[in-house]
Design a protein around this nucleic acid. Structure first.
Lengths: 174, 174
DNA sequence: GTCTTTTGGTCTGTTCATCGAACCAAGAGG
DNA sequence: CCTCTTGGTTCGATGAACAGACCAAAAGAC
């Protein structure tokens, strides 16, 4: 889908969602935001997307109210509350993709944190297997799973993402 | 995203999912399948997608094992079990899109059926508000919601979709 | 059976998004 | 001040999506 063109106006929430997040790269940018990526060059090096398209997507996401640009000059991009609501969709896509294409188990696992300590693993339905609640992203820790393949990528962002950390926590790559 | 090109191979279930369902139109085709659309021309008239692209997408979905082509000649396309697993993602996108862009309430609502009779409404988390289970698509009835706008489209498929019916139930347009 | 219409596509030329690569300006470090 | 990094923008080339014409097979009419 292109900026400027859109799906024929359909009477459907899915189509309206896709008008915004259905473009190439958009959901991967948001995924990176949940994982803690904040800076233009980190997105670029991690996604291997062209700088022009990345700039266009970030602008579109800011314009749509899903990201805010924090600080002048060399800014960082942060998720808004509206974007946080997308977490169940991203988690669902991750689960489905892992189930289909990762025979050795998920590439990344998610764990519910309560007061900083692990409560339980998060299942396919987004609920903590231990306390049966649906934790918000800020209360979730992510770790590489059994199906992870560290040989696939070796940029600084990918390396930083291989240490367990809480979602939304800004990533330190230097 | 293009057939033949793909996301840089990333170690992430979301990226793997999007390699398949991240292309323009693909998720809308699957949405239509859940709503009961089965025939080439019905997809075409409902989505306003070019025939060439529709044919390419259907082929890709059959090749990926998400659809099966039933019957020779003028065939119908039906969802596989793997595709049914995508329901939570599609439902999540619908909820998110309706919440963002539909001030009068959802454009479409979903209701849990038990033995053919309504049990309860399905909430944002995909659970039945009455029995607190996560119904499979075959046990869900869909109806136009308060935010529906029947003036947006007037093709035979859209008209057929305005009567309440069970998900996956083949749609009759003639 | 055969004539006609509908269905399910394919083909073609054009438009527009994405790409890689070069370029540039504004901080940051020394 | 000079240099390096960061955060972009610009540009020409490529390739995907588009509208619309075309076509063959199936289904319905006679």
């Amino acid at each position: 889908m292109a900026l400027g063109t859109d799906y024929p106006r359909q009477d459907c929430g899915i189509a309206r969602s896709l008008e915004l997040v259905g473009e190439r790269w958009t959901l991967l940018i948001l995924r990176d935001c949940f994982l803690g990526v904040r800076r233009f060059s980190d997105f670029q090096v991690h996604l291997d997307v062209s700088r022009a398209v990345l700039a266009a997507r970030l602008d579109a996401l800011v314009g749509a109210g899903l990201l805010v640009r924090v600080g002048a000059g060399h800014a960082t991009y942060e998720l808004t509350a509206e974007a946080l609501d997308l977490w169940p969709v991203l988690h669902g896509l991750a689960q489905w993709g892992d189930r289909r294409t990762s025979p050795d188990g998920p590439r990344r696992t998610f764990h519910h944190l309560v007061a900083g300590v692990a409560c339980g693993t998060i299942g396919a339905d987004g609920r903590c297997r231990s306390c049966d609640t649906s934790p918000r992203p800020g209360d979730i820790e992510t770790r590489p799973g059994p199906g992870a393949d560290p040989t696939l990528r070796d940029d600084p962002v990918s390396r930083a993402l291989r240490v367990p950390h809480r979602l939304l926590e800004p990533l330190v790559t230097r």
